[in-house]
Simulated scan of single mutants.
Amino acid sequence: MSLIPLARLLPRRRSLGRSAAALAIAAVFTALFTAPAQAADGRISGLGGKCVDVAGASNANGTPVQLYDCNGSNAQRWSLPGDGTVRALGKCLDIVDRGTADGSLVQLWDCAGTPNQQWVVSGANDIVNPQANKCLDVRDRSTANGTRLQIWTCSGQSNQKWSAPGSGGGDPQPGGFVVSESQFNQMFPGRNSFYTYSGLTAALSAYPGFANTGSDTVKKQEAAAFLANVSHETGGLVHVVEQNTANYPHYCDWSQPYGCPAGQAAYYGRGPIQLSWNFNYKAAGDALGIDLLGNPWQVEQNAAIAWKTGLWYWNTQNGPGTMTPHNAMVNQAGFGQTIRSINGSLECDGKNPAQVQSRVTKYQQFTQILGVAPGGNLYC
């Protein structure tokens, strides 16, 4: 069954707000922590300048992986051969019992090609397991030798930041995301702390062609176009959920065979493109391998999942347009076609020129930040 375009059914006006506490916390972390040193000799270094280490330098299956003083030993010599694995002592970095929950520990194990041994080293210095949508994390933020490593929801904090050896192609964005963290912060100076840069870069593995297709100009134009539209949808990445709670019960289509297992009022707008309706949660969840129909709250609780739902729409849905927003940008149809695909039935063809202008202005601002021309066909 074809999907009803989600964005055209959402309210457009939202009040803006910002938590001063979130800004203060971010400033404290910036002051207290600096980026880890560049990797050398296969080391993966992180919190406190310490290294990812195999306990006792043992290559037995199940050996704990921990934080330890960097010492140049083989227990700290890691490689990323380009198949998505992270290896030491001839074995792979592995999540115990294939866990996906916060706090699942990591260990060394025979390389098996399973999802719990797949990792993405992001341009933001996160090491992410795509299946769990979680980051390699130092337990309790401790710098004590022997502190176990685990996976945890990506937060952008210092106990999840790593300097790793060259990936050799293991990173689906080997050149890094075309938008740096400083440029992202410049684009969204008042953003909600939920919308982390690390969450966005962790989500890129779901659609590796996004902002990674064509020339550098096209890559930057696509990134700017996506971020300009999500800025418009969320009031500058301020709103995580739809602000009009009166609409919440309206997004359940009981005619669908799977119904609304999370409840009548559970499928309201969430995330950077404000995913709504039970059938859109079902379609996005099926595409991403996440149960969003049963647990739609994941989109407002996990930044990487939220960003993935936005990228799902951008890369796979035509909406009221004739092409996906991704195809509109990589095929140089112009920014105006992305507006049409997201909310064309309410904004394009003269229906709401002020809203169109708002999106175009934001796109022009973002392309300027990225140092690239916006191209033609900006309006719809």
Rank of each mutant, 00 (worst) to 15 (best):
Y197T: 14
A284N: 02
Y268L: 03
D110R: 04
V299L: 06
T114I: 06
Y281D: 04
A55H: 00
P165E: 06
K134S: 04
Q317D: 08
G209S: 13
T338H: 05
T309K: 00
N278Y: 00
T153V: 11
P249I: 02
A7V: 11
Y268N: 09
Y248E: 03
N352W: 07
G176R: 01
I369P: 03
G235L: 06
S104F: 00
A88S: 15
L288T: 03
A284T: 00
P189H: 12
Q317K: 13
A20T: 13
K308R: 14
V241E: 15
S167D: 15
Y313W: 08
G214A: 10
S142I: 05
K161P: 07
E181A: 09
K351P: 02
T322C: 08
R77V: 08
L23G: 14
Y313L: 12
Q317C: 12
T213A: 07
L67Q: 01
P374G: 01
R340P: 00
F184E: 08
V106L: 02
V121A: 10
V65H: 05
T322F: 14
P272K: 00
G168P: 05
A303V: 13
V121M: 04
L3R: 09
I273N: 01
N61I: 01
C111Q: 11
V65C: 10
C260R: 08
D291F: 05
Y379K: 06
T100A: 08
V54E: 03
A31F: 15
F184G: 04
G82Y: 13
K308Q: 11
Q355G: 15
A27G: 14
F335T: 04
